[in-house]
Design a protein around this nucleic acid. Structure first.
Lengths: 346, 346
DNA sequence: CTGAAAGCGCTAACAG
DNA sequence: CTGTTAGCGCTTTCAG
């Protein structure tokens, strides 16, 4: 691959000579304590810089200073609204702090994630943000890499992974799902099924368990649980399976995330049924698509943008190493779970 | 047995001494022409690096080499599926080439974009990718900044902005919309309205114009044009306005992008109407939400992911400076525009 | 093949 | 306030 020579960018020295001052003065005028340089020279330097179209070499700055103005953000999938919202929040927070965001995507592969952390470490970023829950439970290698980074003075913050010993911003998946269950029971529903993701996925587990807990608290039996992929197609497939088997009095299906729920709705329509009327559906996350679908999807709102933002703050503040910030979720009842008729109460 | 001092990462020299070789050899073993170092020393160095958890300081590497292994990606809005898909494609391409992506978002502000280009230039990235169409037509300052970057050996590629003198990957918005119009006319539609974005937005203009051209070719009159925001709320507002004013025989509304179309569908439902039945709707982009809504949205498919990918390739190849890659769009007819009854053909 | 030495562009003590 | 002098961590001639 062609190595484009960056040779001809004007350097600090160019600016300095152009302005008739020393490199040190130029540096001070452009960055350092602006206070200590005379107004005239300051103007001269600024003018020279503008004339030459000077842009400081950030790499050189970084090596000289020993620290960078960047934040490394690792997420699993940019095309997923869940992650891109977190990323948007993180970027906003970073920019507010005058930091640039470097970003890499893992495609949900733990191996790739490990590799990325290792590479990113080379950038000596101010902080590394892990933006999403991990697939597996095997953190050993990742933890070691992170450990090394932190030992060298780096900061780490994690979104939605209460498993690592770093500042973490998360939500209470269990509680959110429990509240949803309670609200749905109050709406008159009694016969549920749960569409859940792979068991290894902590998030999925917590949400499914929370939902069951909510039902249990209302004195209801544990519902059917169908395991499937954590994706829209997964939701579609699971619902199709459910339909094949016969609904048999089922009133509401809770999918552990919105995309699954949306897939389930699609399966219903494919079978000639109307979501919300023939079978109620609820999801989790409140991605923007939740209000685009018809009927609008009942779900649990997750403050994704805020999570990204808070993760940055957590990393930058750097007080309590293991601090956990738990952001509140909100049950959002929409048309996919209309108030249920009383006579179905048993 | 040298222990890395707490608070800083092990350096190349640390690895070198640990392995009992010179820094130069360590450098060669870890990066340079692996050929020129003896197998034993190679092994020694690798082992030492692993033991110390060494991660090369990329900034230092960059200053020494004068070039970086990064690509700077500038995007308008990460939460918008259109841009995040482009970004995902770009990231994929960059990673395939062993490059890291640095990313900044402009929030659709030209000033911010300019500022960002200026800052990014300081990173001396291998290439800068502008990932989306610009709001205004005033490129002067941006062009100058980019010019300076390129003069210093940087590469630039642009997505969807045929206005700048750089490698550009784009789609034929005009043609795509024209084809859509033709297809819809063939479906029996005759009375249209167009929801368009701000006039300054080139993309919006081209799509609206293309649609009109398609109708004109079929011998139909120019339809109503409503200008609004380029967002879902904009689509909602415009459609609401349209409803207030009375549909008056209107059969189909074409919104210049999918999010606007989805907003319009929402407005319809808010008014108690059924999209697709009472009024047909079509959009442009084919974002994933287009298949989530009910009825599924007729639209023009844009290969966003591929655009991001090609932009990287274009930048990296660096042959023709002003090369324009035009990716094909595809009309996708879905349920939001059912075949129209013949008797409405007037 | 390998080490010594000279930078890369910038910052940060130190004297003046 | 400002110039001089050292580096930052790494790469890369240039001799051996």
């Amino acid at each position: 691959m062609t190595e484009a020579p960056t040779g001809s960018s004007p350097t600090l020295r160019d600016v300095a000579t152009e302005a008739g001052v020393s490199a040190a003065t130029a540096s001070r005028a452009l960055n350092g304590s602006t206070r200590n340089v005379s107004p005239e020279k300051l103007a001269l330097v600024l003018q020279a810089a503008a004339k030459l179209g000077y842009a400081p070499n950030l790499s050189a700055q970084a090596t000289a200073r020993g620290s960078t103005k960047t934040i490394a953000l690792i997420i699993h999938d940019l095309a997923d609204p869940y992650f891109s919202s977190i990323a948007a929040g993180a970027i906003e927070g970073a920019e507010a702090a005058g930091l640039t965001v470097t970003m890499a995507v893992t495609d949900r592969s733990p191996d790739r994630e490990l590799e990325i952390v290792s590479t990113l470490r080379g950038h000596r970023p101010h902080a590394i943000i892990l933006g999403g829950s991990r697939i597996g439970d095997d953190h050993a290698a990742l933890a070691r890499e992170l450990q090394a980074y932190e030992a060298a003075g780096g900061r780490v913050a994690v979104v939605s992974q209460p498993a690592l010993p770093y500042g973490t911003v998360t939500i209470d998946n269990h509680h959110g799902a429990e509240e949803l269950a309670t609200a749905l029971v109050a709406h008159g529903y009694r016969r549920f099924a749960v569409l859940r993701g792979p068991d290894a996925l902590r998030t999925s587990r917590d949400r499914a368990d929370g939902f069951l807990a909510g039902l249990a608290r209302a004195g209801l039996d544990a519902p059917d649980r169908i395991e499937t992929e954590f994706t829209e197609d997964g939701g579609h497939a699971a619902m199709t399976r459910l339909l094949d088997r016969g609904l048999d009095g089922l009133e509401l299906v809770f999918a552990v995330n919105d995309v699954m729920a949306i897939g389930a709705m699609r399966a219903l329509r494919d079978a000639g049924l109307v979501p919300g009327r023939d079978l109620a559906i609820a999801g989790f996350d409140d991605i923007s698509a939740a209000t685009d679908v018809t009927p609008a999807l009942t779900t649990v709102g997750v403050p994704m943008h805020a999570m990204g933002l808070r993760a940055i703050e957590l990393a930058l503040a750097g007080n309590d190493p293991g601090e956990v910030v738990r952001l509140p979720t909100t049950v959002v009842l929409r048309d996919s779970t209309p108030r249920h008729r009383i006579d179905s109460q048993m």
